[in-house]
Computed example of a mutant assay.
Amino acid sequence: MIMLQLFSTFENNAFLELAISTLEKKGINRENIFVVPLDNRKESRKLFDTLHRSDGTSLIDIGLAIATAFSVIGASIGFELAWGPIYWGLIGAFVGFVVGVVIRLFTEIILKKKKRRLQGKHSEIILIVDCKDGLAEFVENVLWNHYALGVAKVVSDEAKSK
């Protein structure tokens, strides 16, 4: 008989307890159910990227777009001003870049921080169930019906060696 391990993640709530009790009622021994609590991140995420780590968020994308627009406007108006179109185009580009970076910093620090705090769905518990191949489908359905955040099946090493 092939032995499987089912891994699933849950939030820490009553549905996890209900899933475990349902599995025990079906005949899966307590020794074959393993529950591991996870430690959640306590430190906040870093805003600026390093050479070795990047979160995919760019702080200069809006700055470059606004700098382009402001430089075109500055150069157009600069034909009638004292310093000429080149200086006013450069001034417009600099001001637009600074405005864009400030807008992006505001959205990252203020708005997205609130959004990250409100999202709430964090994996807090890992549940590992050892079962025979015939019960795997039932165990997987029980886990999904009790609101598992994710489920994976792995064939046990005992079955691979035979």
Rank of each mutant, 00 (worst) to 15 (best):
D55V: 10
L105Y: 12
N145P: 09
Q5L: 14
M3S: 04
D157P: 03
K46C: 09
L16P: 05
M3P: 08
G63I: 01
V36Y: 07
S76R: 06
V101C: 00
S123H: 00
A69N: 06
D130L: 00
M1L: 07
L23C: 02
I91W: 09
Y87A: 10
T22D: 14
S8R: 03
L59V: 04
T50V: 00
W83H: 12
G27D: 11
A67M: 10
E158H: 07
D49E: 02
A14D: 15
K113V: 03
L38V: 01
G84E: 02
S161Q: 14
Y87R: 10
N141Q: 09
C131H: 06
V102G: 13
I77L: 13
S58Q: 13
I28Q: 00
K46M: 13
V95I: 15
K153E: 07
T9D: 01
L143Y: 10
I62E: 12
S123K: 00
V95L: 04
L111S: 14
A14N: 12
I62R: 14
I62G: 02
K26S: 06
G63W: 02
I60L: 12
L47R: 06
W88A: 01
P85L: 05
P85R: 12
I73C: 12
E31I: 12
R104I: 05
I128T: 06
L64M: 12
N29L: 08
N40Q: 04
W88L: 09
I110E: 11
L6R: 02
A152H: 12
I62L: 15
V129G: 04
A67C: 00
R116S: 14
W88H: 09
N13I: 00
I91M: 12
V129C: 03
W88I: 03
D49A: 15
L127T: 03
W83N: 14
S161H: 13
F106K: 09
A67Y: 06
L16M: 01
G27K: 01
S71G: 00
I2S: 13
D39K: 15
V102Q: 11
F15D: 14
W83T: 06
H52G: 09
W88N: 12
H146M: 04
V151F: 04
Q119A: 07
I62C: 08
A65Y: 08
L23M: 05
V95C: 10
I2C: 09
A67P: 10
K113E: 15
T50L: 10
F34A: 11
V72K: 08
D55P: 05
I33C: 02
A159D: 09
I91T: 12
E80F: 15
L135P: 11
A19W: 01
F94L: 14
A65W: 11
R104D: 13
A152P: 06
